[in-house]
């Protein structure tokens, strides 16, 4: 029974939010705040529209490319920083400068150089995702037990082999935590970049609808983007759990016993 409740609780929370929204909208009763039900009814309209759907798929494509590129660069960089004090000393000041800058604030400059197309938006997503992935990879690599590496060295693993076959798997739980944060940040920067460089994408649909006072569509888009975030995050967490089950306490067993 308790397991059933805990499984259902996210769903109940969503439902509660929608009910609160519905009641608030009914009470306020203004055009700019449609009820939850109206917004939900608009979702199929948005997704059914060929152009809107292509725009949303465009957004997802940019997000996936930006995220993948960021992971390909940030994971090796973070791992090297974690294992070499010299590499860390070189990149740390650079990252410290970039860290507090909102990546969307770079958008105007990037648009100036790369235009309003895919390149600019992908680059902003790349920048937005990189820092948490670098940071977590760095922490993960730094925490690898020296003696685990020594054990590998005694077996005959070279420095490069130790990097790939000991540091990488040992740091994987931490790396994937960074990637999960990165995934959510990718979604956020994706929408932000499309709001600034308004040419295509989910963020563009949202703001176009806003300009044309189609508030149902505005809220439907918010629901779609939110749902996308929840689904991607849950899927990634499932993948993460499969990859690093060895590092997690066996919760399913504990729950089953209680």
């Amino acid at each position: 029974m308790r397991i059933a409740v805990s499984r259902l609780s996210p769903l109940l929370a969503c439902l509660g939010l929608l009910v609160a929204w519905q009641l608030a909208a009914m009470l306020l009763h203004t055009d700019s705040f449609p009820t939850a039900w109206q917004a939900i009814l608009t979702v199929p309209d948005v997704l059914g529209d060929r152009e809107s759907l292509l725009n949303i798929l465009d957004s997802i494509r940019r997000m996936v490319i930006g995220l993948t590129l960021a992971m390909l660069v940030s994971i090796p960089l973070g791992l090297m920083m974690g294992r070499s004090a010299r590499v860390a000393a070189f990149f740390n000041p650079l990252l410290m400068m970039v860290y507090p800058v909102p990546k969307a604030a770079l958008m105007p400059v990037i648009m100036l150089w790369l235009g309003v197309g895919d390149a600019s938006k992908t680059l902003v997503i790349f920048l937005g995702v990189s820092l948490p992935v670098i940071y977590h990879s760095f922490q993960g690599a730094k925490a690898v037990e020296e003696k685990m590496l020594w054990s590998g060295a005694a077996m005959g693993l070279s420095a490069v082999q130790r990097m790939f076959r000991i540091v990488l798997p040992a740091a994987l739980p931490e790396i994937l935590t960074g990637c999960r944060t990165g995934l959510v940040l990718a979604l956020i920067t994706m929408v932000t970049s499309e709001m600034i460089a308004r040419q295509s994408g989910a963020g563009n649909i949202l703001f176009n609808a806003m300009d044309m006072a189609q508030y149902d569509t505005v809220f439907a888009m918010i629901i779609i983007i939110g749902a996308l975030g929840i689904v991607l995050d849950a899927a990634f967490d499932k993948l993460r759990w499969r990859l690093v089950a060895w590092a997690e306490p066996r919760q399913d067993i504990l729950l089953g016993a209680s």
């Binding site: 003696k147 685990m148 020594w150 005694a154 798997p169 040992a170």
Partner: peptide, 11 residues
Amino acid sequence: PVFQEFALFPW
């Protein structure tokens, strides 16, 4: 080597 910390590969 055999270490006090075991240093097994947890994965």
